[in-house]
Amino acid sequence: MAVRELRYFGDPVLKTVCDPVLKFDKGTESLVNDLLDTVDKPGRAGLAAPQIGVGLRAFSYNVHGQIGYVLNPEIVELSEETHEIDEGCLSVPELWFPTTRAKHAVVRGVDLRNEPVTVQGKDVMAQCLQHETDHLDGLLYLDRLAAERKKQALRQARGKDWFWNR
Rank of each mutant, 00 (worst) to 15 (best):
S79V: 06
K23F: 11
H83K: 15
P42A: 14
R158L: 10
G159S: 12
P98R: 08
S79N: 06
I52L: 04
A58N: 02
D111I: 00
V110Q: 00
P20W: 11
K103F: 06
C128Q: 05
R44W: 14
T82Y: 07
A147Q: 12
P42V: 08
L6N: 07
Q51Y: 03
R4V: 14
Y69Q: 03
T16E: 15
V92P: 00
S30L: 13
K15I: 02
V54E: 15
D11C: 08
A45N: 08
K160D: 09
V39W: 01
D37G: 03
K160V: 12
E132A: 04
G138H: 03
G65Q: 10
Q120T: 13
V17F: 11
L140S: 08
R101P: 03
A146Q: 13
D111F: 00
L78C: 05
L142Q: 02
L22K: 15
N165P: 09
A102W: 09
R4S: 09
H64R: 11
E84G: 07
L142Y: 09
G43E: 05
V76S: 02
E77W: 14
H135D: 10
W162T: 10
G65E: 14
L136D: 10
R108I: 08
D86Q: 12
G27D: 14
T133I: 13
L47S: 06
G10A: 06
L31E: 07
E132H: 04
L129C: 02
L71F: 00
V124S: 07
L35T: 04
D40L: 12
V76K: 11
A147F: 15
V21D: 05
L35Y: 01
V39L: 05
R44H: 15
E74S: 11
T100W: 10
V119A: 01
E132K: 02
V70Y: 01
E148C: 09
A48T: 07
T133Y: 01
D123T: 07
C18S: 11
L14K: 01
V107I: 11
L6D: 02
L78V: 13
Q51R: 09
E77T: 15
L129W: 07
M125N: 03
M125I: 14
S91M: 04
A105V: 13
L36Y: 01
G109L: 03
M125G: 03
Q156M: 12
L140F: 09
L22Q: 13
H64L: 15
P98S: 05
R44L: 14
R57D: 12
M1L: 13
Y61W: 05
A126Y: 03
Y8L: 09
V17T: 13
Q127A: 13
G159E: 14
D11Q: 08
D25K: 00
